[in-house]
Amino acid sequence: MSINTATIKDTIINFLVPLVALGVCVLVGFVVIWPYMSALPSLREELQQKRDLAEQLSDKLAKLNTLADFKGTVGEDEELITKVLVSDAAVPELLTQIDTIGKEAGLQVTKLSYSFDESAAGKTAPAAKDGKVEEAPAYDYVIVTYGTLGTYAQLKTFLSVLEGSARFVDAESLRYSLSAESGEKNQLDITLVLKSPFRSVESSAVTDDPILFDIASEEFLGLLNGVKKLKLYEFSPDAILSLPKEATEASGSTPAD
């Protein structure tokens, strides 16, 4: 009996090879293509995230290096801004400042009391900045009720000097009437409610968070230049000890006019 090798060869080539090829295709499809195809989008996404993070950290590092070069300036700027927006209530200093400005303007103090408004404490509101949502600052306030006698011109001077003083003090409300008691013409009985914000800032370093702050931005430098023009009232402990006798605390309540 003779074996027809050509027939066997043909059978192998034409039957087994396609079968094996298709089998391998299916196997490769299940073992390699399907899992890799499934994993590829997440790998691509992870790579993009890493790229973004690496770029963000690189930018942050560059910014920090720049800030490190101007370390002294950063410290000075912070100190300067802290004189306008103080860290704590510092009530004696505030009352002394208001009293001093009042005296400089020629006003006679009749009432000086204070209270705290902490209604805004801890409250934050989202504020968009460069497409990112940041927390808008919230403050605590010292509310000062300032009663005084003086003329219209003196009142204007007082407000003008107060607006130009370093520690931030805003007039919340103003009321005056012609004084019936003083007997002098044009003498006004003035009541001012003043608000002075304070805010304690204790930031922490968050490695992956970007620093949006730019020490060289025009906006920041503009504000800093404005702050430098303000008049700073600094009081020694002796001056604070001689606080006006009228100063009384009415803590816990909003002063009534």
Binding site: L64, L67, A68, T82, A136, S203, A205, I211, F213
Partner: peptide, 17 residues
């Protein structure tokens, strides 16, 4: 430096407002 910059930024934003 980062803490210092963040403190300055926080105060700056507050003061600006």
């Amino acid at each position: 430096i980062e803490i210092s910059a963040r403190n300055l930024d926080a105060r700056y934003q507050a003061l600006k407002l």
